[in-house]
Design a binder for these strands. Sequence first.
DNA 1: CTACTATTCAAACGAACGTTTGAACGAAGC
DNA 2: GCTTCGTTCAAACGTTCGTTTGAATAGTAG
Lengths: 251, 251
Amino acid sequence: MSDQKSNHDTRERILDVAERMFMTYGFDGASMRAITTAAEVNLAAVNYHFGSKEALLCAVFRRRLGWLNRERLHALDALEAQAGGAPLKPSQILEAFFGTLLRIGEDESLGGMTFLRLLGRTLTEPADFIRTFFANEYAEVIERYKLALFRALPDVPKAEIVWRLHFMLGAMSYAIAGTDVLQVVTGCELGDLAGERAAASGDDDAALARRLAQRLMPFLLGGLRAPLPLAAALPTSAQESPAEGDSSTEI
Amino acid sequence: MSDQKSNHDTRERILDVAERMFMTYGFDGASMRAITTAAEVNLAAVNYHFGSKEALLCAVFRRRLGWLNRERLHALDALEAQAGGAPLKPSQILEAFFGTLLRIGEDESLGGMTFLRLLGRTLTEPADFIRTFFANEYAEVIERYKLALFRALPDVPKAEIVWRLHFMLGAMSYAIAGTDVLQVVTGCELGDLAGERAAASGDDDAALARRLAQRLMPFLLGGLRAPLPLAAALPTSAQESPAEGDSSTEI
DNA sequence: CTACTATTCAAACGAACGTTTGAACGAAGC
DNA sequence: GCTTCGTTCAAACGTTCGTTTGAATAGTAG
């Protein structure tokens, strides 16, 4: 019955199934019994190999985020080396950050759209262990990219850049998680998207990922370089907020 | 001990507490026992007044979304009446849609930031009853605004507008839900945001909501009007995709 | 063959969950 | 006063959850 399940085969099979079920049903909604049954392993296997359900979720993410964060840092290193000390272009930075992420969706061996959707969805889960896990996992990468954006946009207040980075992450997360409500909401009574998605279901998810990237990147860039809001009614932070008069057209 | 709890007082108190606890712990994470204990009502009160936990969540949203959707439709009606048949400006449409939403955050009697955060968070919950509930609740409003955007941006392919509406909803949802991971992620080692939020905690949430709106609207508008992606590698949908050459600067 | 380690398995554990029940309570109508 | 109806209450129901346990089963080295 059991073909050749080496020691690591069970672990990997659990991770694959857990990735898919956490994505579909959420962390609370995917029970250990459902996961282990679908993975055709014993109920106790998860606790034996990973320790707990929470540790399993972290393991699911660690398997993918290692590659992602490494690749993101390499991409930034390469860009900065190529620029030779000069500030990067915002479009380059976004391409390195979001393009690398979206490439996961095109490659099933990196997790594919399943992992992308899981990632986008899990970022909003309120459980504490998830929050601290992602904070630790993302800290270095975010810090590097934030500094790169600061250098790329010296005339934009740093707080504004952080806000917009926040907005961009949100737009991306929803976009990739969005088989949900929003797909239903925005897709109602419009055949175009449905038709596109139906046509894409024939292809791999890879095509959908490429299309998503092509659509998302210009949006993010447009948002990042949008005119600054008027400085009125922002009396608290008396930080660097001068000279946004003409930056509105040039940022 | 019990002051003067009229019949409706219990219902309202349950709704208030449920709103806050669903926001903090999520739908699964907030147990009936925790909710009823915090509301100082009997455990059976929820099932008596609302029928079930799922119905309670829907009631929490219905209490707020009624006002929101009505206001959104009125705002659009007013704009279109004022324009007298001419297409609206995209900024007007976004202001009517997102500005109305963000005004909730400024008014505690409309739910305040608590409800905004709950809304942003719940939109990603994978439970089926939540998806269908929001789909029904939002259908009319989204349809109206989508058509308004189509008329406002006649040179932009409709599918592209829907994508960008999707992105905007995502950016907004994350922005308002974002006490979470993203606040931690983007806030690490940057004193500005933390300082701003600390300073804002002195004020109401209203100040935070206003600041958020001021920051979010330009970002969304910039994303909506960003240059279109190149039509290359999009062979499937042979729809209206001409004339994006100069629309990149003017949309 | 034996001993040992790593893994799998069926079974059970205690806790927490959403929901139901039937009695008790209190104000209003006749 | 008595009944009626909407509401509250303590208690329990049955289910499902994540986790633990101890025996059974390979696979490997001595």
